[in-house]
Design a protein around this nucleic acid. Structure first.
Length: 506
RNA sequence: GGUCUCGUGGCCGAGUGGCUAGGCAGAGCUCUGCAAAAGCUUCUACAGCGGUUCGAAUCCGCUCGAGACCUCCA
């Protein structure tokens, strides 16, 4: 029996608003797509929350034995500012302002994004396609939409005909929007508009003579709209109907709504069985966003170089902090909450290194109640995660387990009062959920700083030894450090410096 | 204006018709050369007002408050 059969995953499907049990298109396989970043700027912590959440979704599916194909795109063209169909392309604007090639902008911020993902221990997706790499496919699907009567061309641009689509399909199925209300609210269609209706959205935009990002198409030189790239890249790699599509709550409308309309319009099939939306990270109750100017960059967080922070926090503390809440709730970011998280994470981290060092010694007589309670804790770990990826409850279980682990360590409870098989499954579950599922690991950069501090303490002791003319101790400190790859050097003035041989750390 | 979500103890945050969430902080105890770590015990709670129910923080209604989306945002 597979783990995913024993602990079937249920999740809140945004499409139905209800908790549903995951039943994959292909048994034993999960295909999932998540909208990645538009690489025109540095990612902030709100972005990180979404990618971290879906990292855990993918990790957990794998942990249960599913074969997962996780696709997360890079948006490097087509994402317009201000108004979906009238603003300037974000990448192109940045390129113009910084006097760079658009692809220089894309490269720079894509690298930055990957570095942030690495710092937070967010694993790379299986496929990371870019919009500019799929222009041909986008043109193809736009053609299909025109042929199917769901899109029309005007002056070298192509728009999706929402009203037409809504005649036989349901535009608003995901977001709950009513098309009549959308038609009434907001700004009116002005005379410059090419669209038949203001709720129509761009599939292809004609490039003005000075627009730098442009590709040839049946409708002249231009560039693709924002929504079409995700439809193309998700269905290309996952099939016309796939299991799971995720993204931030703020993409639900219009982006994801448009994706459904495009896919249904092109293939006649519902593209996604389960939609998953993560809620927003807030600061003082307000959504963290680039446009509001209240966003935190990961680097500001690590260094503590931000008005709202008293000190810096490591990436694992932040990871733990975010996992304490459910993905569907807003999470408020504050200094107090972070410092509480720092201590809580340390506790779990200590338990993790403790249990790794525990070795089972036989010769005892297992106590049935204890054995049963440990088995129950392991069972709860799976149940909590399978229940809509409830990381908060999972952490609560891990805290209970860490109390048991410390009992074993201190000898309050003898290790051999539980049978070996139970102990090993307990240990494997704790380590597995910490490292593989939740991705909580040691913080290397932090340790590097501590290492240098420790060496300085030893240097002070060695200076004292030299003053006392205790050269055997002085030499021992220097020689022992050298063995570990730390070279101490005595200066003429009695000061000491050191170099660390990086290779010896790894 | 329309659509929707939320309001839990000093703080952060799960949960949901009856059974301990958990973390941080506070108090006490054990351990302890000191400190730390750890274990145990313990105190603060479900915005307000009505209703349904044997029983509601959990369901329904209203009021107040906060936020999100409707326009670029994960």
């Amino acid at each position: 029996m597979k783990l995913y059969d024993k602990y079937p995953v249920s999740l809140t499907n945004s499409l139905s608003g209800k908790k549903e049990i995951v039943n994959p298109v292909n048994a034993g396989h999960i295909g999932m797509y998540v909208c990645g970043p538009t690489v025109y700027n540095y990612v902030h912590l709100g972005n990180v929350r979404t990618f971290m959440m879906f990292d855990i979704v993918a990790r957990y599916f794998r942990f249960l034995g599913y074969k997962v194909r996780y696709v997360r795109n890079i948006t490097d063209v087509g994402h317009l500012e201000n108004d979906a169909d009238e603003g300037e392309d974000k990448i192109a604007k940045k390129a113009r302002l910084e006097q760079l090639e658009p692809m220089e902008v894309v490269k720079h911020y894509t690298d930055g994004f990957h570095e942030v993902m690495r710092q937070f221990n967010i694993l790379p997706p299986n496929i990371e396609p870019s919009a500019t790499g799929h222009i041909v496919e986008q043109i193809e699907i736009i053609r299909k939409l025109i042929n199917n009567g769901f899109a029309y061309e005007v002056n070298g641009s192509v728009y999706f005909d929402v009203t037409r689509y809504n005649e036989n399909h349901h535009y608003g199925i995901l977001s709950g929007r009513v098309i009549e209300e959308l038609m009434e609210s907001g700004r009116k269609l002005d005379s410059q508009d090419e669209k038949r209706n203001k709720i129509d959205f761009a599939l292809w935009k004609k490039a003005s003579p000075y627009h730098i990002m442009r590709w040839p198409s049946p409708w002249g030189e231009g560039f693709p709209g924002w929504h079409i790239e995700c439809t193309v890249m998700s269905t290309k790699y996952l099939g016309e109907t796939f299991d799971l599509h995720g993204g931030g709550m703020d993409l639900k409308f219009p982006h994801h709504e448009c994706e459904i309309a495009q896919a249904v319009g092109a293939t006649g099939k519902n593209p996604v069985n389960y939609w998953l939306h993560t809620n927003m990270l807030t600061v003082n109750g307000q959504k963290m966003s680039k446009s509001l100017g209240n966003s935190f960059l990961p680097s500001e967080l690590f260094t503590g170089n931000h008005a709202l922070l008293e000190k810096g926090y490591g990436p694992m503390t932040v990871r733990f902090f975010m996992l304490q809440s459910h993905y569907s709730s807003t999470l408020d970011f504050s200094n107090e909450a972070l410092s509480a998280a720092e201590k809580g994470y340390k506790k779990l981290s200590n338990a993790l290194s403790t249990i790794k060092k525990l070795t089972y010694s036989g010769g005892g007589s297992p106590v049935p109640e204890l054995t049963a309670s440990l088995q129950k804790l392991v069972d709860e770990l799976y149940r909590n995660m399978s229940d809509d990826f409830n990381t908060a409850k999972t952490l609560a279980s891990l805290f209970e387990m860490s109390a048991r682990i410390n009992d074993f360590k201190s000898g309050n409870v003898q290790l051999n009062t539980v049978d070996q098989e139970t102990f090993e499954s307990f240990r494997n579950a704790f380590v597995g959920f910490m490292e593989d599922v939740l991705g909580l690991t040691e913080e290397d950069e932090h340790h590097q700083a501590i290492l240098e501090g420790v060496i300085n303490v030893l240097i002070e002791l060695r200076k004292k030894a030299r003053q006392d003319r205790d050269f055997s101790l002085s030499d021992k400190i220097r020689d022992d450090l050298k063995v570990m790859g730390v070279q101490l050097m005595d200066g003429k003035d009695g000061e000491m410096s050191f170099t660390i041989d990086k290779m010896s750390i790894y």
